[in-house]
Each structure stands twice: as C-alpha cells, then as structure tokens.
Design a protein around this nucleic acid. Sequence first.
DNA 1: ATGAAAGCGCTAACAG
DNA 2: CTGTTAGCGCTTTCAT
Lengths: 338, 338
Amino acid sequence: MKATIYDVAREAGVSIATVSNAIRGKGKISPKKREEILEIVERLQYQPSMIASALTGKRTYTLGLLVPDISNPFFGEIARAVEERGQQLGYSVIICSTDNKDERVERYISLLEQKSVDGIIIGTGISDASLLERLSSRSVPVAMIARDLPSADVHKVVIDDYLGGVLAARHLLELGHRRFGVISEKHNRERIRGFCETVERSGQALSPCGIRIFGDDDQIQDGGRAAAELLELEARPTALFCCNDMSATGALRAAKARGLAVPRDISIVSFDNTILSEVCDPPMTTIAQPMEEMGRLVVDALLQELGDGGAKQRFVLQPELLVRGSTAAFVPEEQKNA
Amino acid sequence: MKATIYDVAREAGVSIATVSNAIRGKGKISPKKREEILEIVERLQYQPSMIASALTGKRTYTLGLLVPDISNPFFGEIARAVEERGQQLGYSVIICSTDNKDERVERYISLLEQKSVDGIIIGTGISDASLLERLSSRSVPVAMIARDLPSADVHKVVIDDYLGGVLAARHLLELGHRRFGVISEKHNRERIRGFCETVERSGQALSPCGIRIFGDDDQIQDGGRAAAELLELEARPTALFCCNDMSATGALRAAKARGLAVPRDISIVSFDNTILSEVCDPPMTTIAQPMEEMGRLVVDALLQELGDGGAKQRFVLQPELLVRGSTAAFVPEEQKNA
DNA sequence: ATGAAAGCGCTAACAG
DNA sequence: CTGTTAGCGCTTTCAT
C-alpha cells in the first residue's frame, strides 16, 4: 500500500496536521521537526494524494481541453502549448476530441465537471449556443481558444481573423494577382471577409471569382474538391486563399493534378502555419497563428480567473504573413513562354 | 454550490445510501423510489463527484499518456486512438509530452501517481531503464506503446519493426534498386536490421552504402542533413529508407534541393503513414503502422490488468507496405534519356 | 508551535 | 428493501 500522511505522522511522532504543514511550508513548525518529517517523507516515499486534497475543497490541478481532433496538427500544436503552460503552473490537461459534434462536446463537458476540473478550455466548434450558456453558468471557469462565439461571456484568445484575410489579400495583390478563389470552412467568415473586402477595396481587382465553403470531415479532400471546381472556371483564379493548411494541401494537390504548376501557374496562400505547410512542395506561403502564445494565454487567463474571478478577458493576437514558395508574381499566359 | 448526494437524499426523503444505489443501479430498491430519486437527480442537476468516489478507493477513471510530443503527428494519432478507446470505456486521458527527457518523464510519472491515475501508457523514450523498473514496482499498472524496452515487464503493444524493414527492402529490391541509404533514429535498430539483412540476403545487392543515425530534436532537419550526406557519396544510393515520416520529408526536400527528382532519380520509403506522408509531393511510399489498433489494444490491456492483474501481454502487430508515389523502378542513368 | 477534531462527498459493510 | 455508520486521505479551524 502507498504511504499515507498517517504513516508519516506516526513515524515522526507528530500529528497529521503537523506533517501537512511541514510539507507545504505552511504554519509554524520548529525547523528541527520540519527536517525530521521531511526526511521520513523521503524514506517512506510518501506522496500526498491529490484526490484527497482535492476533496477537501482545494483544486484538482487538472484542466480539460476540447478540440475537434487532437491528431489534427493545428490542434496538436495548440494542445502542446496548453500542456506546456499548464505543466509550468502545476496543472495537467485532459484531452477531449469532439469531432465538432455537439453530442460529444456535451458528454465531455459533463465528464469534466464530474471530475471537478479547475477549468475547461474550448477550442472546438459548438453549434448549439445554449450549450455554452448552460456551461458558463456552471461552476467551472471556461475559456475559448482559436474559436470565437460572440454570445459567450468567457475568456477568449483568438487571432485577428479579419487581418489574416487582409494580409493574404495584400500579399497576393502586390504580386499582381487579380483573380482570386477562396476556400474556407464555414466558421471562418472573418478571414473571408478580410480577404474579400481588401480585394474589393483595391479597386484594381475583380472580386473573388469564386468562394467555396466546405464542412469539416475530411479537410484535405474537401479543399481539393473545392480547388478543382474553382480551377475549372472559365476565367480561373490565378491565386487561391485557403482558410487552413489542411484544405490548402488539398488544393495544392488538385492544382498539380490539373497540370498547373505552383506558384508558376497559380499561387496559394494557406492559414495556420502548421507542420503541413512546411512539408508540402512547394512549402506553403501562409498566415501564421502564434499557437504557442495562444496556448499560454488561455491557460493564464483561466487560472487567473480562479484567483480573482475578475472580468472576462479577450485577447486578440496578430497573425503574420509568412512568405514561402507557393506564391509568386502573376505573369500573364502570353508572357510565360518568353 | 453544486448539489451533493445529501441534497438529493434530503429532497427525496431517503438516505444517501439509497440514492447512491439508485443511481448506480446497485442493491435493491423499489422501482417507485428509484423513479422518484432519479427525477430529483435530474431536477437538481446532480452529478456525482468522481473525486469523492475515487477517494473511497474506487478508480479515478483517468489514464496518463506519455509521448515525446503530442504535436508530432504520429503521436497525435496514437493519442487520438488511446483517447477514443478510453472514452468508450469511461476513461479520460491526461497528455504528457516528455520531449524524450528522462527528467520530464520522471516528473510526469510522479504527478500521475499523485493523481492516482488508473494506468500509465508509455509511448516515449526512456534512457534510464531503472526509471521504468521503479515504476513498474509501483502500484500503477503500466503499458508501453510503440516503443519497446525488453527489460520492462509490462504490457506492450508494438509493431514488428524488423518486418517493417524487410517490407521496405523487398519493395525496393523488386523495383531493381541495389544501392541503398538508411536514415534512422537511434532507437529503431530493428527496422534497420530488417532492412539490411534483407538486402544482404538478396545476394544481388550491395549492403547499404550508408547508414545515418540522428537524434530526436528536429527530425525533419536531421533527416534532411542525413540525406544530403548520403547523396554526396560517390556511389550514391538510388533508394533511401527512412525510419519515420518526419525524417523522410526532410530527406525528400534534401533530394530535391540537390536537383534530384523523386522517384525518377531516387526512391524513398518512409515509416509510419502519418498525414505527413500523405501531403508531401510525391506522396510517400511508406510502411504503415496501425495506430488506431495499437491505441485500442494498449488501453484494453491496461484496463484488463485492473481486473485480473494477470500476466503481462505483448502484442506485436504487422506493419504494411503502402505504395505511393515516392518509389519507382530503378533506371540506370544511361537509359534515362531514352 | 502543535494537536484534536470536523468535515469534503461518496461507497461499502452491516443492521434492521 | 432501506438506513446507519465507518472510513477514504487530506486540509483547516480552533484549542492548547
């Protein structure tokens, strides 16, 4: 059996209260007794039971993290960042892959509540807004990362999606592109808006000649399909803006399959800057999200709430354009053979 | 405050024991009372506290999963599989990214013990064998996945690494290749052995003209560097065998950087079949690991031990050759222009 | 400076 | 069938 605080107390000839204090450096104990106790703790390999101390009303030092899929590189990196910061602060994190299914979200949240986690971080889609309401009215602090839900009064860490779209559009416009295609998941409206408004405002470009929205089952495939459609257009786009790396790799493949060279015949800008944008060929020009910082911030916001219970914060981080090999200056067909 | 079992009992005019029984369908209760109680549970939104029930000596229904890095696609997929199976069986999983550092392994294990997890799944490297010994002598059941450590007497789920090497070699030999390069992490000796022995045994091929072993910091970069070295050899290999997808993408890039076309000038076989092997160009021929099945099996083995405490099992799964675009028949230089 | 005792919320005998 | 009673291992007043 594992040693308990009683074993230590008996061995040391003191009360359990004293042992507890000695270990946690609380209260006042004579340095000598303290030494003795610590030594016995060591010898008995005593490790306080966190579940017992949690029951006493303290924290569980555990956080729940909801994401669509932990095996999706973007969320894998988010998870890593969250885990890292949690670790530093003494918290562990339970992963919950929801597949963006409300039913799974609900089940996981209920589970996390029963486990009395100290906080829940939501990085997954929630179509039923009332679900989140019910949740935030509960006892567990909640924070959202990478996804926004305006109606929810919780801490949020997001990037400026609109700006991300703007950055992508500007880059492409500067390269001389004038005909664009947009490929996006349905929940990335802001990225699209930023992109389209910038294009329109430039005055010199046609508004995107095609926008394709897809679901979230197989993003690579959906992105490829969407790209294939756009590339069949009579006046086909010379540049594509994809709302994430997954769909962009699909689009990249589709372009190649159609015999188009990237970036020679068509430029592609993706979003996220996960490892996927790095390994594809050409490496993808992308709008990078600061995933590490995002992870750190949600954890901090969440844990801070435990302390002061203060107002909900909303962090909006800046995405950055990362130019790699999938974009190039537009060259009219006529001039290509020159 | 959240409702407790006492609130329900009071409201229902019964004892807490009856409530407990009613909820868990244990003992004998009159159907009528049972109904009543369940109704009140519903109304009060009562959710049993898992930490309280855990303290009573029951399980915590929580598992710990140690991997080098959750943001590495391979481990992301393993984690997803473990999570999935855990979920089905009522368990949640805590992620622990170790970066393959013994110090982090130790810290995480200690933490998991304090949290009284019901089991620990190890999918990370452990250089200090005694660490694992100490661990398995503890109270917590342990299982290993994707990594083997012969000295450890715990459940294991691995693939036949040797066979994986054999499969890769056979494929390449059949394609007519005779000069090979091998790129591997240091802990993948079996894959290398399978590959090399098959090559040698074929009689018709030179033994691998170069083997490069690298660390585990930046696998893409290391893989690229290793490949670059091999490709500079005077009699350079016409085919490369990389021990995982990460290093293979690095090798792929290095080959291209050197002006070599894949698979025209050089073939590459990778290992794992993560999303990386799918998105690179050309898509990578790879030795696929059944990650989902592996995840399912470790969880099952671990939880079964909780029941019978029986003998340690060792599952060895079969890897499979997945031919994609990075391998092609060897064609001598002379004939290429034909 | 230290100890006694009262819970935290629940499960598991054991009585009735 | 249902209630009483002991803990589980720890933290926290409140005395001493």
